[in-house]
Design a protein around this nucleic acid. Structure first.
Lengths: 153, 153
DNA sequence: TATTGTTATACTCTATAACTATA
DNA sequence: TATAGTTATAGAGTATAACAATA
């Protein structure tokens, strides 16, 4: 029984694409939030670690990417650093800059979480056949194209 | 120029369905969070108001639905009630129960936010043709079926 | 002067534990 | 006893404003 069934709150009938997108986003985020919490991470902390997986950005770049204030970033990095998940290192070439990188422990936990997320979403994705999965991915990517520096005008 | 382009953080190449789903969910949530903030609402407050749009649930039902503790619910309802967005009313038939309902002001704001969300997501959905939109909706609904009390075993 | 980052402060969100009132 | 809800407390996430150090 889901929490909704327990709560007696029913889904509405209005069901256009926007509603479906929003509901799917909440369902996906609920999975991510739950798995992050199982590893004592907030969703934001998990995002930070995930970004650091293959990058070592400046504090400012990290804040920009996440859409957060630099002061918020300081707090997030403080707490993650205190837990030994990441490290601050002097930014190359600029005496003011601070780069952020994963620690070994941080890299391990983000790998584990990544695997767990894939397992947790597998029951959903496996509702679709291989061709349908490709089609869904193509449709979503057209709506939400991956952002990259090369696409700058 | 997007914040990512400014930040110099590039998307990775690994791009299976799970990654696309997660990225799409974050992109969608970013839109919702931004629009909620423009109306001085947190995402959670917006969810509360959206649920109340066509329902008048108990405190407990609301907390269950959102996956929050009842004490958290008390705080959320406190702040929303203080702002005049909703009202507590005695629950029918149980002297302990409290039902929650939108105020007129709350109903107005949730309608406005709802419209704004549709407008904000329109550029994305309109990347797809009508048949593609139907296909995407069907695929997503198969992965994330709408929860309803009737589906209980 | 402008930029990078931190610190101080305040508010929201969240959970746990203890409590009151009702069932 | 069990359930519905609130209150007290604590910690995380967030923003704004003021600051220090570097460019």
């Amino acid at each position: 029984m889901t929490s909704q069934q327990a709560s007696g709150i029913a889904a509405t009938d209005s069901d256009d694409l926007v509603d479906t997108l929003v509901q799917s986003a909440f369902a996906t985020m609920a999975v991510l939030t739950r798995i992050a919490a199982e590893h004592d991470l907030s969703l934001t902390q998990l995002r930070v670690l995930a970004i650091l997986r293959d990058r070592r950005p400046r504090m400012t770049a990290l804040a920009d990417y996440l859409g957060l204030e630099k002061s918020t970033m300081s707090g997030l990095v403080d707490r993650a650093e205190r837990r030994g998940l990441l490290e601050r290192v002097p930014g190359a070439g600029d005496g003011r800059a601070v780069d952020v990188q994963l620690s070994t422990a941080g890299a391990e936990i983000v790998d584990r979480v990544h695997d767990t997320i894939r397992e947790a979403l597998a029951p959903m994705t496996s509702e679709l056949g291989p061709a349908e999965q490709r089609r869904l991915q193509n449709l979503l990517r057209r709506m939400f194209p991956p952002r990259s520096p090369e696409s700058a005008a």
